[in-house]
Design a binder for these strands. Structure first.
Lengths: 97, 97
DNA sequence: TAAAGTACTTTGAAAAACAAAGTAAGTTAA
DNA sequence: TTAACTTACTTTGTTTTTCAAAGTACTTTA
């Protein structure tokens, strides 16, 4: 077992790390909130949320607010659990410095 | 300025994070040490060390130990500084959880 | 002296990241 | 009222990165 064994590949990118961090402290976030908070492009947010969705770490809800489409992202129970594990692994790795 | 602004892209991969962590606590590490500690393949170690070297975050020294070639990796002053910044940014981001 | 091992490096395919362009609806302004 | 613009994404295709298998240049062992 290597020292990076519990680093989860799914979170191993700054944008996905950012998305998860946001969804851990906020109940949900919508597309534009993620986009602004992370300073990423539309395509970027779309692909990273898609990969987290595929892993079932976040879920997506589409609705209309007034007449505007709105996409909300939530961390799933699994996502929260795995992210905590990831953080612990990160802290273990970098905590020594 | 986004919340992931100080996350350094150069360290934004578990293997490179691992390499730097190792080189922060150990004065140096050689190829096989990195390989074993990280459980990565040869090609993997080679390419990730190369990218860190290109960024001048680590330096490489090649020598012979007895008759065997041996490659040692050291973190540079810049590398240590930038890695600390990266860790601080990471902790700021995930510390809220 | 042939086969196996060591310590890397090179290569090329596969996957991931990215931004520009596209889509579909709503809004505003002339 | 219709053309131009905005919003909220999605799709597309190129570029970049990741990866492991194969290659290289020795050395060691049988």
């Amino acid at each position: 077992m290597s020292i990076i064994n519990n680093i989860n590949k799914a979170f191993d990118h700054r944008i996905r790390l950012g998305i998860m961090s946001i969804l851990m402290v906020n109940d949900y976030a919508d597309f534009n909130m993620l986009k602004e908070l992370l300073g990423a492009t539309d395509g970027n947010i779309a692909s990273h949320t898609k990969s987290l969705e595929k892993a079932e770490y976040i879920k997506v809800e589409k609705q209309f607010i007034g007449k505007k489409p709105n996409t909300r992202y939530y961390a799933t129970k699994l996502g929260k659990l795995e992210f905590k594990k990831h953080i612990n692994a990160l802290e273990k790795l970098i905590g020594k410095q």
